[in-house]
Design a protein around this nucleic acid. Structure first.
Length: 298
DNA sequence: AAAGTGTTCAACCGCGTTGGT
DNA sequence: TACCAACGCGGTTGAACACTT
């Protein structure tokens, strides 16, 4: 074998760049059901045209349920400054001290905000304890003021949809969606935007995810569905039940019979050689009010 | 209103480390 | 022990957005 490192994956034919909502959903569904023991094999098994590295990064930096979003609090910023002083650019170590924050996010915040606040090296020598006070004393740039403003509207997620997918509105929970928004003035007039109110669970700091997550998203109907699948599949399937509930899919939700039938039906398809996530989505989309969405996705 | 410039952050890239054989 | 594959980390890039002129 030649010297040097083999590429992490065969890049030909793989997607690059931003992730689509469908890719996100596939990745989340797959990981929650099967875990991520093997990143290299994961994209193929999940039906994703991505390399494993890309999947891992997307999961770690964006999709993990315990990620805290929004601006850093002053306490967090101070912690980053102190930890950076002690550890240097060991972003993953710093991140491990800040629950819910990713190394990538911390690195970005450091490079874009915090680094600028620190005194110049010569000043630092003369006032070693000035790192945190440098934060408090500094004046805020306009960009940062803008970021603060963004916090006020940071509780919503906007998802562009095709104009002919009006049925999509019916699939979305009224409590979660502000609808519809003729797309913002700057963009082309042919699309519309769903605004989904941010899931409150994302606001939970320091989540030790599994137990607390379930209690946060608990509701009676979901709990019944979740219990029904839990006996056969454990947390992964329980999570999928939640996901389906979220999307108002009916495959596993609803009555125990429906749960059992839907589950067994998918299991049979998987056994026949289909990939599990594709089977999952195809069944969900074809068997529910999400069929129009299916046309968009496949 | 338009063009230019600056900022942000998700994603990519390459390399060091780790674990299995 | 050597080799290899995969993982994980840190640096960098570039598209999108915000702000200024």
């Amino acid at each position: 074998m030649g010297r040097g490192r083999a590429p992490c994956c065969e890049k030909v034919g793989l997607n690059k760049g931003s992730w689509t909502p469908e890719e996100d959903l596939r990745l989340m569904a797959y990981i929650r059901k099967y875990g991520h023991a093997n990143w290299r094999a994961l994209p193929k098994q999940a039906g994703l045209l991505r390399c494993g590295k890309s999947c891992r990064l997307r999961w770690i930096n964006y999709l993990r349920p315990d990620i805290k979003r929004g601006n850093f609090s002053k306490e967090e910023e101070d912690a980053v400054i102190r930890l950076h002083g002690a550890l240097g650019n060991k972003w993953s170590k710093i991140a491990s001290c800040l629950p819910g924050r990713t190394d990538n996010e911390i690195k970005n915040v450091w490079n874009t905000h915090l680094k600028k606040r620190l005194p110049k090296p010569e000043d630092q020598q003369s006032s070693p304890s000035s790192s945190s006070s440098a934060v408090t004393d500094r004046g805020e740039s306009k960009a940062e003021a803008g970021a603060d403003e963004a916090t006020a509207v940071d509780d919503r997620i906007e998802i562009p949809v095709e104009p002919d997918s009006s049925d999509l509105w019916e699939m979305l929970d009224d409590d979660q969606v502000v609808k519809p928004l003729p797309c913002s003035s700057s963009s082309s007039s042919s699309s519309t935007t769903i605004v989904v109110l941010k899931d409150p669970m994302e606001e939970m700091p320091d989540i030790s995810i599994e137990p607390e997550l379930w209690s946060i998203i608990d509701d009676d109907e979901l709990d019944v569905a979740a219990r029904n699948v839990e006996s056969s599949g454990g947390d992964g399937e329980r999570w999928l039940a939640c996901l389906e509930k979220e999307l108002e899919l009916e495959l596993w939700g609803g009555s125990g019979d429906a749960v059992a039938n839907g589950h067994q039906g998918m299991a049979a398809e998987v056994e026949e050689g289909g990939d599990p996530v594709t089977c999952y989505f195809q069944r969900s989309l074809s068997s529910s009010s999400l069929a129009p969405l299916g046309d968009l996705l496949y």
